[in-house]
Design a binder for these strands. Structure first.
Lengths: 220, 220, 220, 220
DNA sequence: CATGAATGAGCTTTCATTCAT
DNA sequence: CATGAATGAAAGCTCATTCAT
């Protein structure tokens, strides 16, 4: 009846195929290095289709960024936390972020690319909010609530802002993946091993917990 | 008699001019986006000269990376630390790194670019060591020594590896500069202000110290 | 009951809208420069509709030319002349032509475009006569009759052919509008002013009358 | 010794070849219709060379316009007039202009093209004067002097401005060539014959002389 | 030692048009 | 009667690089 050769579904399939190919190619070669030829070839389509669906190379890149944020947001939504156990939950958040970055290195490269361009693509997104408004991060909200609960339970000290704690999680997770090639040379050791990653992740968990905890909690 | 119009000095001046222009252009547009035309124009020279001095686009990029590492190394050499006061010195290291990144954002973008290319340019450097060896970081060595001294003084706990402490400093400093454009939108606040940067820097100082310190030291 | 949302009228409205947009766009950008995209956008329609109503780009251009000739013809029909006063009527003809060109510069550019293409579009018009036949110009007939009357009244001399007199009127009016941009630079003066146009028009009226008049008439 | 395969002369030859091909192609297809591919093919060169020598399509078109004006200027310089015989000289001017247009129809089409673009290319010419200044026409100066001499000799009347007389010559010569295709259909006769052209030229000579002459001179 | 001249391959984008219902 | 979807071909232009002296 409504099989997969329907025009509408074929349309969606081609568009989707280009979007995925573009994500891969842009993540590997950057914006300038990611030629439309590479992308359309990877999508088993032709250059012209990119213009048909996305209007321009920039339009395609914006769509890739949007899609990337959307997928990240969806993953965050699936994260389950126990509001009554802030210590365990904070650790869960950290391990979630690290795991996500490790599994989605394209997320890292795309963001770096956009930052190299001084963030000028994203504001052009039709879905982007008005300037001044921000993309909501459910996880950052969760961190804020966990810190509050921890304080109520006498486990966490006053002081650390949710923003800073959250940024620290992002920074440590991001940097390790983003700079793994130069760091490996720089440190003279392979950072891609499970062991090295695990050690780093444990260290970050410990550090974050130490910076939010009361001295009392640390003694136990 | 050795004035600046000597052929040799003119030569060096042209080479130098190209190298600096290339650093700026690659840092702004990336490797693929940084065309030889843009570079030679910025250097007030011509494309042909790039080949004369650097052999190829890749050769020029490698020279830029080397020069960038060299300058970073020189800056590290100038860093003065008091080996007897590990707490103050650790803070000095953090503030030095943050300051350097803030003042040299091109360092960040060039490293991101090289990482996007999976670090394939740097190994081709004629000055690069044999594979397996690493670029020495005087600062990382300094951090290791400070941690040791701190432990001897009973201020720092056993546990944290110098590598992890050092990476945390790099990560937190790096990430803030590298992702400032997308983060500004994401957080809905301007991160480029002195105030915002200062708050973040203070938080990192506190966090790093808390993660290396004994519980005892923290109580005071 | 025959309101404006009738299918038939909507159809005619779309067709009309495309035709007018095409006239503007072709007049501004020429045949090759006037893309179907520009036209359909200006008509607030889509490319496909052009094919629906006009078959091809060439078909549309031919329709534009036909429409242009038709409107010129209609304007000529509205021109009222006093057959008993050939001198005044000749002046009326000249001022009419000049005024029409000034108000319809698109007429000029479209004709230039068609001439650049060596007049190959017009013969393809379904409404065009068989090769050899010509588009009738009521005005040229009028000029012929005025010259005849003038001669009968002893005002005009024998000699000047109606064709030549008429061509001279067209040429002087046409050239001034057609070449106004390059002429303005060439002459170093602005030709678009009322004053400059008026002086030129007066000169042409005088010249045409002098060339058709008997010496006797000129003495008075 | 210095044969034609010298780099310098080869260079000039290629540049020249492109310039001539471009003149032909632009004159035949207009600016938009004259693709760089058509031009480089006609010049037996490749697209890339056009950018090497002229920077852009627009740069090439400007060079074509400049060259065209230069050649027209050179032809005007070669025109010899007898200052003591203003009547004969005026006729010589007219026949020269008509002959030039007839032999250089590309001049006409290129000017029409530039006027369609509202004269926006020529001002970009590096050789173009400052806005307000004009390209000098030696012929228009000559016409002015002839009119003056004629008045001194009592042959020409006061009144007609040199500018208007000159414009009339240009207009009548230009229009006939420019619109020959549509006019042939319109008038229903072939205008390309020697006879038709001659008749028109004679009529213009007569008309111009009648408009500048005193009544007295006309009686003889 | 230094450089002007030349170039093949690739880039993003737009063109007029047809397909399919 | 009307239109959304799709497309091959060509457009203007820039790319990194080599030639030749």
């Amino acid at each position: 009846m409504d099989d997969s050769t329907t025009p509408a579904s074929r349309t969606r399939a081609t568009r989707e195929s280009i979007l995925r190919a573009a994500t891969r190619v842009f993540a590997r070669y950057g914006y300038d290095g990611g030629s439309l030829d590479k992308i359309s070839r990877a999508a088993k389509s032709v250059d012209r289709m990119i213009y048909y669906y996305f209007g321009s190379k920039e339009g395609l890149f914006i769509a890739v960024l949007e899609d990337m944020y959307r997928r990240m947001g969806e993953a965050e939504m699936r994260l389950e936390l126990d509001p009554r156990d802030p210590v365990a939950s904070l650790e869960t958040v950290i391990r979630f972020v690290f795991r996500y970055y490790r599994r989605h290195p394209e997320f890292i490269v795309l963001l770096n690319t956009e930052n190299m361009h001084r963030g000028r693509h994203l504001p052009k997104s039709p879905r982007a909010r008005a300037p001044g408004e921000h993309f909501p991060s459910p996880t950052m909200g969760a961190v804020a609530r966990l810190l509050e609960t921890g304080r109520e339970q006498g486990l966490f000290r006053r002081g650390p802002a949710a923003r800073d704690v959250y940024l620290m999680i992002l920074a440590t997770g991001y940097f390790y993946v983003s700079n793994r090639y130069t760091l490996s040379r720089f440190l003279g050791e392979d950072m891609d091993t499970e062991e090295a990653q695990g050690e780093w992740e444990d260290f970050v968990v410990e550090t974050v917990l130490r910076t939010v905890s009361t001295t009392k909690r640390l003694e136990h």
